[in-house]
Amino acid sequence: MKPPPFGYHRARDVAGATALVAELGEDAKFLAGGQSLIPMMNFRLARPAHLVDIARLGELSFLRRDDDRLHVGALTTHHEVESAPDRSVRGFEVVREAMRWIGHLPIRTRGTAGGSLAHGDATAEWCLLAVLLDAEIVTASPRGSRVIPAGEAFLGFFTTLLEPDELIVEVVFPKPAPHAALTEFAERRGDFAIVAAAVDLDVAGGRVTGGRVVLGGVAPVPLRVPAAEALLGAGERADAELFAACGRAAAEAVDPPDGPGPGADYRRSLVRALVARACEEALAR
């Protein structure tokens, strides 16, 4: 279908973009890569009265590693991250490797990190990575700038803490995660995951001394699973047995949606397999 009519505005800088959305009111939206917003408009699931195109804000397009932190500008595309040289993602390889799970090449050349986080799909790779690695989401609005911890950013089904006139400027990953991995299962290559699992392990002398487990596709938001993380904090040997137990604990802890499409039992089986697989991949990295 064709998208409904709207007024088109092109922002020249961050302050102008947020002021304009504030002025145009509730029915105005930022337009970044358009890879979520335009399909929703073509389906008539979204009918914004105004779009403020932020794509020309070149200052929001960067990937920078400094002082052990990884900074990703909001307008950096999935493909730019996917093609980043080793040195600019050292210690954060999980972020680069996760990009290949996002849709397909022509989606990744347009879609952006900031757009994914703002869209807030619970299976979106950027949302999972942000929660897994305790990222900080830096925003700007007419009221100033603020830092939203990723753990607090996602409120519910496609709902985030962002105000309508609040622009994501960058996402900052605060410390390297050399033993982290994200894996998932989808019906077709490039589809959104039915279930996605991301883990970050602390490994010392062949033992796992801590870790985090985040799941997509089992709840309205990316979900941390303390019951599975507890198993990773006990200093056990890093082996298949521990990882399988971690997968089982995660599967028992979640209460995935049932109903049309893949049911709760199926999702729980996927959790069991994917958490173990992500652990193996994280250890091997």
Binding site: L31, G34, I38, L105, T109, R110
Partner: peptide, 15 residues
């Protein structure tokens, strides 16, 4: 678009 493959149904001409 600028050498990279894109979906032209997911891009407004204005972009």
């Amino acid at each position: 678009v600028d050498g990279a493959p894109v979906r032209s149904c997911l891009m407004f001409a204005a972009q």
